[in-house]
Each structure stands twice: as structure tokens, then as C-alpha cells.
Amino acid sequence: MNLEKTKPIHALLSALNHIRAQPFLLVVSSIIDAFFFIAYGFLTTPVLDRIVAQSVLITNELGKAWAAGPTAGLLKLLILDPIKPLTGKLLILLGILFIVTFLVWVIFQGSSWYFCRHLAKKPVSYKKYLLGFARINLIWIAAYILYKLLDAIIGLRFVLIKKFEPAAINILGTALDALFVLLIITALYSYPSLRELALFRKKITHTLAHLALCATLYFASTFSINQIAKIHLEAGFIAGVVILFPIITLIKTYTIEMAFDK
């Protein structure tokens, strides 16, 4: 069997060739990715801090309500006094987090994917791509917020269950995490062509091979960076910038190649 002729390997080699031919676009896309992490951290950390504080206050009030004796269900308690104002504030903060995450993701990742489309020699209009990227991400970020809400509810519920049954296993939480991984993969496959369900139009064996190769590339790079950081912290930081972001760009270009490969 000639490995080079298999679709996943052919697409990877093609992505590598395109990157080698256009190093400038690789640098631009990597820099945008790096700025995304800086901007995301800077803009969401203060909001996340407040969400954690609000969650602690709600858990505290729930604990008091449950300790007082038999009460209504968890969701009902959240919309009744004295927890209602805290729930309201939490929802507003989640709304702010939703808007900030959405805007930062669309601006930086939309631009980065646009340059990757050019890297893969599948050019597209910037305005058209960014607007399409924003539209598709409305669905993904809404699903992400839903996941976060469910995760918070299941998490709170599990904390309470653990008080009565310390050996309890969080099955719902694990199932939710599996769904979240599927959501990430579906989103990743939707970005090249801006079609929501592009993942399900591909051959499963090709998709699995592609995902395995992407995961190998990503984890091999993070492992190398960790090893370098153990020897020298600053060198690890530099290696992180020099290795990780180009690898992310390669993964994106490779995904585009896979999406458009007939």
C-alpha cells in the first residue's frame, strides 16, 4: 500500500508543501493565533473571576437551603428568593462572557482561518469569509454556552449528591464531556467550507486518520515544549511560540486540504 496516495497523508503532504512555499502566510497566521490567546485571556479573565465568585455564592445559598430540610428541585431553587438575584447576575455575566468570547474568536480565529485558506491555495474574500465565520460560530458558541450551563447545573447537582453518597460517579458529566468533544470536532470541520455538518459528509476512516494525525502533531509539539521548559523555562516559552503556533497553522491548513480534497 502506497501511504502517500492515501487521502489523509496526501492532504498532509500537500499542506506541508503549501506552507513551505508561503512562509510569510505561516508567520502571519501564527502571529494572529498568538494574539488571540493574549486577547482572550486579557478580556475574559475578569469576567470569569466574577462568574466563579457568583457560583460560590450560589452554592453557599443552595447548601443553606438544603440543610434547612426538604426543599424544591435545584432549578426551582435557583429562580426563587434568596438565590434569584444571584442567578440573575450569573446569567448577565455569562451573557457578557458569550459576547466577548464570540467577538474575540471571530475576529482573531476568522482572520487566522482566512490566511490558512490562502495558504492551502483556496482563496476567498475576507469580508465574505469573516461574515460566514461569524454566522457559523453563532451556532457553535451558543452550543458552547449551553454546554457550560449544563456543566454548571450537573456539577452543582453532583456536589450535592456527593454529600449523601460519597462514592457516586458523575456519569452525566462524562457523557456531557464526550458530547463537547464531538462539538469541537464538528466545529473544526465546519470552518474550511463554512458548512455546519461538513464532518458528517466525510468518510469516517479518513476523518479518524486525520484527527489522529492532528492530535499527534499537537501533542508531540506540546510534549517537546514541556521537555524544553523543564530544562529552561525561558527557552520553553520561546519554543512554545516558535513551535506551537506554526503547528496550529499546519493543523488548520491540513484540515482545509482534507475538506477540499475530492
Binding site: V47, V52, Q54, V56, N60, L93, I96
Partner: peptide, 17 residues
Amino acid sequence: IEHLFPAPTVSQAVQTA
């Protein structure tokens, strides 16, 4: 955000709890 949206910090919330 702290002026626009007054809320306790994480440490204050934990202290209250």
C-alpha cells in the same frame, strides 16, 4: 468591569461562604 458590574471577588465570596 468592577465599576460597571459591582460584584464580590472570588476570595470575598469564599470568605462569605
